[in-house]
Design a protein around this nucleic acid. Sequence first.
DNA 1: CTATTACTAGTAATAATTATCGCTTAGAAA
DNA 2: TTTCTAAGCGATAATTATTACTAGTAATAG
Lengths: 131, 131
Amino acid sequence: MKKRKHRMTKQRKVILEVLRNTRTHPTANWIYEQVRKEISNISLGTVYRNLKLLAEMGEINILDFGSSYSRFDGNSKNHYHFTCTECDSVFDLEIPMDQIIDKEISNRTPFIVESHRMEFYGKCSDCQNQM
Amino acid sequence: MKKRKHRMTKQRKVILEVLRNTRTHPTANWIYEQVRKEISNISLGTVYRNLKLLAEMGEINILDFGSSYSRFDGNSKNHYHFTCTECDSVFDLEIPMDQIIDKEISNRTPFIVESHRMEFYGKCSDCQNQM
DNA sequence: CTATTACTAGTAATAATTATCGCTTAGAAA
DNA sequence: TTTCTAAGCGATAATTATTACTAGTAATAG
């Protein structure tokens, strides 16, 4: 809803360039080190700020678990989860794990897949009603 | 490979009980608060230590992204990832996103699913060769 | 060119998690 | 039961990824 003007600063441009020119999925610190080769006095805070902005702009993706702290699950057998993007609640899903897909990926790639995790995101019942 | 003797202390028992008796997926701090009702002087460090141990013992699951820092991806369109459990490298997978599954989950649950993420885990080529 | 305000570098603050340490205790063996 | 010892404990300090703050800088509209 808020319209925000974005400037294309040298810092932002170089950060995006670094990220576009690698096929790895680097950490903020790695990006910082690379960008320093171009802009030696850039600040790590600037890197974080721009990564966040670029993600909001839809230019890049941040791979984390969303929230900053771990969640613990008393159910030790593998199962899928649904996370509400509104209230951050996590629910178990009753649908069965797809075991076959691991083998399929193993066959189609040079990787040996041992397991997978699937996380669904959306709105839970409570948050749907409050809209 | 290392055989470790595990004792069933009161602290560990209560932590596991708390976690087994909830269907939420609590944070370490929430668990700490609950356990304090039983053992008022328990330390938060004890909670963390036991959660980690219980996970190693296969009693519970930790829901996080594995590593402690975020990874950033210059590719903004959704796709699946493979993470090597040996060297922590993250690779893009070329298999197409399954869009249909979101609707299926929406139909079968009270949730509105807007997106999902699937993460595969195993051994990458390099790490397979080093064994 | 000038005014506005997003942005930056540098640094301090925050917060989740882990490490340390001296004391305690679960559990095996005597 | 008593003894023994390493696993575990509480308290606290340390670590570390990330965010907040601030005074100065610079991108862009007019």
